[in-house]
Every structure is written in structure tokens, then in C-alpha cells.
Amino acid sequence: MAILKTENLTYCYSTGTPFEVTALDNANIEIDDGELVAVIGHTGSGKSTLIQHFNGLLKPTSGKVLVDGKDIWESKASLREARFKVGLCFQYPEYQLFEETSYKDIAFGPKNMKLSEEEIDRRVRKAAEFVGVTDDMLERSPFDLSGGEKRRVAIAGVMAMEPKILILDEPTSGLDPKGRDKILGLIKEYRQETGSTVMIVSHSMEDVAKIATKVLVMNSSKVMSYDTVDETYKRADEIMQMGLDVPQITKIFMGLHEKGFPVRTNIYTVEQGIEEIKRIRGQVNGL
């Protein structure tokens, strides 16, 4: 069964005024348990609006959001449940840190869930260990940590709520290549270890190609496609037309294809590229 489902989900800003804007237009998605979904789209494509519906931060103008088959707007209780089932980590989450120590900050979410002291402690330590925050760092003020460390503390704060679905909005923005790879690695590991559903919002097809199982493409407030990484890359040219970047390697193979070489165009990692070149050379030599 789908863990997350939307039915004709539509959201408009400033309804009832002449400035009405449709930020999300009739979205129908079904996400299976355990997927690692990448949501891509440029700024203003509706991707941020979409994810804020999943934990009930935004109320649909029309349509439904179902988490675990339950309409989250059915009652106050179901909304509260959804907020804890779906953990949402915003862009630049380090700017939301506020507690005296990293420990207390990570504990903020679990505390709001009204868990027992022991359970909170267990979750905080587990999440901290997972993202590589040491005991020493836990006792320090989060503001004394480096940029990358702060971000990991902030992400741990959401992970400690142990949501069934973890959503991260642009978790790598502003980080250098090393920091980016570290965060992407953590996300992948998190999914493998907990088996939870994970969604990451990104501008970069290159990043998501490395870890995602499915890709949800958003463009001008609409869901364009929801498919496997392979299938999505078959339509790389459409994605480029939307103003999104595809990896250089994909562009190289699109270029070769244009020149008339019989190469596949849904190549998105260097390894795939090498295999494809070997295959083609074999063919050419075989002729």
C-alpha cells in the first residue's frame, strides 16, 4: 500500500482576491513505502508547496493528502499524527537551531511528541550517533559548531522524531563537495538502516542520480512525472528545457546521440558511461 498519497491536490495563495496564484495544480501521487524519492524542479515549480502539504503545514485548497491511507485533515488528532509521521527538514535547517546545547536541540522534536525521558534520551543519542555528532559536541552549544556540523545536528533533530517518512528540502545547499557527499551518504544510509521512506528536494539531477530510486519532476505547479531514475533520464532533454541541469555525463551522451552514434541517452553516472562506451566500441569493432 502507498504510504503517501495525494488525490487531486490543489493549493492556491491569496484565494478570493485578484492576486490568486495556483501554486499546486491537481497533483496525484502515490509513493510506496521504502522508496527514496528525489523531488526536482526549479524555484517556483511548486515543489516546496507540495512537501509542506505532506505534514499538514499547508491546508489543501482542494483535494486530499493521505498518510498511511488516512486523510490527514480528517480530525485534529490525525493532523497531529501526520506531523509526527512525516518529518520535514527545511532548507538551511541550521538557522533554526535555538537551544543551549546540541543535545537539547535534537530533543526538541521528541519532547513535543510527549515521549518519556528515557525514550527521548535513546532517540537523541541514536540520531546523533547516526549523523556523526559526538558526545562532546552534544554537550556544546550548537552555535560553536562548524557549518557542516550544525547542519547535521539540525537533521538529527528531525531524525530523532523517527518519522515514517523523512523529507529534506535541499539538504546540500550551500555545502562544498565534501559536505554534500557526506550528507547524501547519510541519507542513503538512513534509508537502508531504518527502511523508512525518504524524500529529498533538489535542483541537482546529478546529486539525486547517485542515491534516489524514484524521481518526481515538478514544473509550473504540476507534477510532470514520477518514475524510476532510468526512465526519468530518458527524457533528459525535456528536463533541460524546464531550466534544470542534468549531469555533464548525460549531456555528453546526448551529444554523441545527436551526432548519430547509437548510444543510450539515459546515462547519469561515469560508471554507466564507461560501460556504454565499451559496448559501443564492441559493436563498432564487430562491424
Binding site: 546529478e206 549531469p247 555525463i249 555528453i252 561515469v270 558511461g273 564507461i274
Partner: peptide, 28 residues
Amino acid sequence: PQATEFSIELSKIGLNVPTDTLNTDECV
């Protein structure tokens, strides 16, 4: 850049490509 990495990897498996390609066009 991925284009550079790609050329370097290809030359490692013995293919005759320059290892200093910087962009898509050069690599193509």
C-alpha cells in the same frame, strides 16, 4: 568536472582520449 573525470577513467582502461577535456563539447 564530470567530463574530465570521464576522460581520465576512459584513458585508464586504455582508450586513447585526451585527459584534459573540460566541458561537454570537448568530450563529445
